[in-house]
C-alpha cells in the first residue's frame, strides 16, 4: 500500500520531478539561507570604504583578464598562510565584492593583502613585463593595459548597478563617477578634492601609471590592486595579534 505512493510517483513524471527537486533543495536551503540571516556571519566594520570609480574599473579589468583564475583573494586561517600573506581574510572584507573573487587556485600567490605592499611603479613594471621583475614568473604580459585609455564615461552605470545589488554608493557618487575616475590620477586638482570628500581622506590619489593627464586601464588596475585588502582597517587593528583562531 505504502509503495503505491512511490508507484504513482514514477508513473507520473511530474511527481518524480518534484521528488527530485525536493530532495535536492534541502541541502542548499539549509546551508545558504542562514548565511543571509544569521548575524555574525559577516563581521561589523563601521569604517568600511567602497571602491572609487577608478578602482571599480580596475576590478572589472581584473575580472575581464581572468586574474582570479591564478590568484586567490582568500587567506585561510592556517599559520603558514598568515605568515606568508598576512592576517587571514574576514568575511566583511569581501562584503562589497559582487561577485566575490576568492578564487580556487594559486598558480600565482594570494592577493588578498596586496594593497600597499609594493609601489605603483613596481606594479606597472610587473604588469608590463613580469619577468623583468621576477625572472622565474610565468604570468602573462599585460603591456597593452598601459596603451589603452580607460572608458570613464559610463562608470556611473557600473556604480548604479553595484548600488542595486547592495553596495552603498550615493547618488552623488554615481553622478560624478566619470569625473572622479579622471580626478583620481591627478592629485592637487579640484576634482581630486571633491573625490576625497566623497570617498574619504584615505583614498589613494596619485598618478598610478605615471601620467596625470591620461587615464589608462593600467591606472585603473593598479589603483584597484593598491586597494585590495584595504577597504577595512582589519590588518592595522589586528596589529601584532596575527595568530589564526583554533585550528584542527
Amino acid at each position: 500500500m505504502l509503495f503505491n505512493v512511490h508507484y504513482r510517483l514514477e508513473r507520473r513524471t511530474t511527481t518524480l520531478l518534484i521528488g527530485i527537486v525536493v530532495a535536492a533543495s534541502i541541502g542548499g536551503l539549509v546551508e545558504i539561507a542562514p548565511l543571509f540571516t544569521i548575524e555574525g556571519t559577516v563581521e561589523a566594520a563601521p569604517n568600511m570604504r567602497v571602491l572609487t570609480p577608478l578602482e571599480v574599473a580596475g576590478r572589472d579589468i581584473y575580472v575581464r583578464e581572468g586574474c582570479y583564475l591564478c590568484h586567490s583573494q582568500m587567506i585561510r586561517t592556517l599559520q603558514d598562510e598568515v605568515d606568508r600573506y598576512g592576517h587571514y581574510s574576514l568575511a566583511v572584507e569581501s562584503k562589497y565584492d559582487h561577485p566575490m573573487l576568492w578564487g580556487s587556485k594559486r598558480i600565482g600567490p594570494d592577493l588578498a593583502r596586496i594593497g600597499g605592499k609594493y609601489s605603483d611603479e613596481w606594479h606597472v613594471r610587473h604588469l608590463i613585463d613580469p619577468r623583468a621583475v621576477v625572472p622565474q614568473s610565468i604570468m602573462p604580459r599585460y603591456a597593452f593595459l598601459a596603451q589603452r585609455d580607460l572608458k570613464t564615461a559610463e562608470l556611473g552605470e557600473n556604480l548604479a548597478a553595484l548600488r542595486a545589488v547592495g553596495v552603498p554608493y550615493t547618488r552623488d557618487m554615481i553622478d560624478n563617477a566619470s569625473a572622479d575616475a579622471t580626478a583620481q590620477v591627478a592629485a592637487d586638482s579640484s576634482g581630486a578634492a571633491a573625490l576625497l570628500k566623497r570617498y574619504g581622506e584615505a583614498t589613494n590619489v596619485r598618478e598610478f601609471a605615471g601620467s596625470t593627464s591620461r587615464v589608462t586601464e593600467m591606472d585603473a588596475l593598479v589603483a584597484y590592486l593598491q586597494m585590495v585588502g584595504k577597504q577595512t582597517n582589519i590588518e592595522d587593528d589586528a596589529g601584532a595579534n596575527k595568530k589564526p583562531p583554533d585550528n584542527d
Partner: peptide, 21 residues
C-alpha cells in the same frame, strides 16, 4: 544586475561570503 541592457557586464546579486557559498 546588468549595468545596462546594452552592455555585456553585470554584477552578481550576491556578494562576498554569500556569493562564495
Amino acid at each position: 544586475v546588468p549595468i545596462s541592457f546594452t552592455r555585456a557586464k553585470s554584477y552578481s546579486l550576491f556578494g562576498g561570503v554569500q556569493d562564495a557559498m
